[in-house]
Nucleic acid binder design. Structure first.
Lengths: 154, 154
DNA sequence: CTATTTGCAAAATGTTTGCAATCCG
DNA sequence: CGGATTGCAAACATTTTGCAAATAG
């Protein structure tokens, strides 16, 4: 808990040097982000923050997530049809999400290296493989279904 | 225009054999889907349909897109933060979307073959690379930015 | 001090739902 | 005819915005 304190302070400094003020809602948001590594929705982050400062509003959370994203500290990704998930940019990774049971697997950076290379070579596109999850069927759900993971395969 | 008539009829038959009724809104939705190949949002499809039958409502369009999706005729994908895009499942393809200028490139099936293979091998996941776009920076926007396409690359 | 940030309430956006009226088969 | 489908309006879920009051530096 105090291990991440240094990194937390770094983020607060970054805010200051960007001309932003360090306020209680911002402090608590950064604290929440470092406290647990996983993804959280804006609503979940707001709940954690409100446990400490009950009247921080969710719009403040959204505004500050946006600012932290602009500064490169935070990233959001879309793992399904629900709300976006936020996490530290330094913990960026890809996601496989099962469209049947909603299971999700976090996948390492390197998994997309080849795709990235080819996207650059063929289309000049520098992809960010984290932003949207890759939907599919997990092993368990494939077994239960005749429906293939991909309509056009074969 | 009458070239796709056969395929349109096939879809209508499929509806009938699924126990669904063939109504005017359904006919017109299928017609719109075949008429132009691109992606369209529910709202755009509704507009095309309403040009022919003014009081077809957007909720009917949503309901019928859902049913056609269930039957495997239609697919939707998320190309960005806005509304979902719908198109014929038979025309499934991947998407690269520039997060700066919103340009998008449609990419062939085969582009994901290797990723698919490795997702199965390593995680047992059968991915559907069409559902979510792959976000990134197009060549033009990379040139204009110091910000790299990927935070963790390097 | 004063410009930034906040809380609240309201708007905006995209999609879903309840229900009585309508239509297909 | 009878159940499936529709249109409408209202609900819903997520995110954004306007604005006066609070606050950091």
């Amino acid at each position: 808990m105090s291990l991440s304190g240094d990194e937390e302070e770094e983020v607060l400094s970054l805010l200051r040097s960007a001309g932003d003020r360090v306020t209680t809602p911002r402090r608590l948001l950064v604290r929440s982000l470092f406290e647990a590594a996983g993804h959280r929705t804006a609503e979940e982050l707001a709940a954690e923050i409100q446990a400490r400062a009950p009247d921080v509003s969710i719009s403040t959370v959204y505004r500050n997530l946006e600012e932290l994203e602009r500064l490169g500290v935070v990233t959001h990704s879309h793992l399904g049809h629900g709300p976006a998930s936020y996490h530290l940019a330094s913990a960026a990774h890809g996601h496989l999400v099962c469209r049947k049971c909603d299971a999700h697997v976090e996948i390492a950076e390197g998994f997309f290296a080849d795709l990235r290379r080819r996207a650059i070579a063929e289309f000049g596109f520098a992809i960010d493989p984290h932003h949207f999850a890759v939907i599919g069927l997990c092993a368990g759900c494939q077994a239960e279904t005749e429906d293939p993971g991909d309509i056009t395969a074969g």
